[in-house]
């Protein structure tokens, strides 16, 4: 469904991604593993169209996204749950969710979708009328994921969903990620807590210095000596 071929990208004169090739097929859970600064977030930002690649190709169902703006890519069914939640803090949770379904296709059946999503995340239903900025970190992360689901995406991308959360809350968030996966949504996830993500991932890619250096099934990567040494500090 999503395919990156020899992608190069960066910020201004700094090239962060040297050569990234990966693919995500429908129904898969794919994870990208790598150290801070290896280019994981940059990869997701390039897929969303937030930065323009300087080389290589990104295709969604065979369609090149080079000319598309971020909203155009959302229209293709690609949605990101960004790092640090990035809610609209002075709006209610309900308004945040409604914005998740901003694109016309999703807006057409916004009420049904809201019901489906709230069934998936009953905790969010209790908070609908509160301002998003007043929620705790864990609740905000839940709302951010629910907002992403509102678009009824073909592919939902997570960028560091456990960032800055206490260990107990991290467990809850992973529970939600598992629920999203179980609902049949295709997922691409970047997460520093690689133990959990590699266990649920159908496939994983290891990114170092902006290059994919290794790929395999999640559990296999978890047993790989290089991964163990570099990312688990063993």
């Amino acid at each position: 469904m999503l395919r990156l071929e020899n992608l190069r990208a960066g910020y201004g004169p700094v090239t962060v991604l040297q050569d990234v090739s990966l693919e995500v097929n429908a129904g898969e859970v794919v994870t990208i593993v790598g150290g801070n600064g290896a280019g994981k977030t940059t990869t997701l930002r390039a897929i969303c169209g937030l930065i323009k690649p300087t080389g290589g190709r990104i295709t969604v169902d065979g369609k090149d996204t080079a000319r598309l703006s971020p909203p155009g890519i959302v229209d293709l069914g690609i949605t990101m749950v960004p790092e640090g939640r990035q809610l609209f803090p002075f709006m209610t949770v309900r308004e945040n969710l409604m914005l998740g379904a901003y694109k016309p296709a999703a807006r057409a059946r916004i009420e049904e979708r809201m019901e489906e999503v709230l069934t998936l995340f009953p905790r969010v239903r209790e908070r609908l009328t509160q301002l998003a900025g007043s929620l705790s970190g864990g609740e905000q992360q839940m709302v951010a994921i629910a907002r992403g689901m509102m678009a009824n995406p073909k592919l939902l991308m997570f960028d560091e969903p456990s960032l800055g959360l206490a260990p107990l809350i991290v467990k809850q968030v992973f529970g939600i990620v598992d629920r999203v996966v179980a609902s049949g949504t295709t997922v691409l996830i970047v997460e520093q807590n690689i133990v959990h993500t590699l266990q649920i991932a159908t496939r994983g890619y290891v990114l170092e210095n902006g290059k994919v250096v290794m790929s395999d099934t999640g559990p296999a990567l978890l047993k790989d000596p290089h991964v163990k040494r570099a990312y688990l500090g063993v």
Binding site: P167, N193, V195, K228, L232, G233, V234
Partner: peptide, 20 residues
């Protein structure tokens, strides 16, 4: 630090402990 259980749970990950 490398052997501290609290550190392993919060940061290094349980795998780390098994591997170590």
């Amino acid at each position: 630090i490398a052997r501290n259980p609290a550190v392993i749970e919060a940061y290094l990950g349980e795998e780390y402990a098994h591997a170590a």
